[in-house]
Amino acid sequence: MDNHIVVDLPAIVAIIAAAMITIGSAYWSRMALPRQIDQAYRASLHALAAAVETKDSGTVGHARRVADYSVAIGRELGLSPAELQRIEHAALLRDIGKVNIPHSLLNKSEALTEEEFDIIKSHSKIGADIASQTPFLARCADIITHHHERWDGSGYPAALQGEDIPLSARIVAVANDYDAMTSDRPYHKALRGPAAARIIREGAAEAYDPAVVDMFLRILEKEGTILT
């Protein structure tokens, strides 16, 4: 045959194709796919959060704001990206336990009796239970459990004090309370940003971690909600 032909075109085409397929699949599995999976996780969490909010207050969007504030605080405090993601997911799902609390209690405009308040309080533990049953949410369980703890130990469910409360839970607590104060609920009218910020500031050292409050106020200043 033609021994002088050195270049075998089909072979080269095949090898180039193989190389392109290899590079493409590496890109897909290392870059594109993880991003898509991450987005799918996040979308699922938003849907779950929306379901809780539909039941809880009837208006959707709190979870997203709490998550945004929590992540902003965490970033200011220099937390790792992995921890920021954990905070975001936990903030979205902090109230998922409310699925087991009757509407009539969640939206009661009169003062709650002690028994009723105990039922409401159970939501953080129930939420942590639900989260720990789902593989990709299990790591958020401790934040969900403790997002109603107070710096001085007056919170629930474990009445932890100071730095015994996980840092991420302390962050979510501040963001959560600020958002609750600034939105309308059956039992109170919405406060304006600066008024709510003042309450948060006063609560530092008592209800909230002072360092977290510091960061949070700095963020509010930055976004122009309160003046310096």
Binding site: D8, P10, A11, A14, A18, I21, T22, G24, S25, L33
Partner: peptide, 21 residues
């Protein structure tokens, strides 16, 4: 055109995308 090598090259690269998929 190429013979047996073709089988190995083609299947080799296809199996590389397997885990990605």
């Amino acid at each position: 055109r190429i013979g047996t090598t073709a089988v190995i090259v083609l299947f080799g690269s296809l199996y590389m995308i397997r885990d990605a998929i």
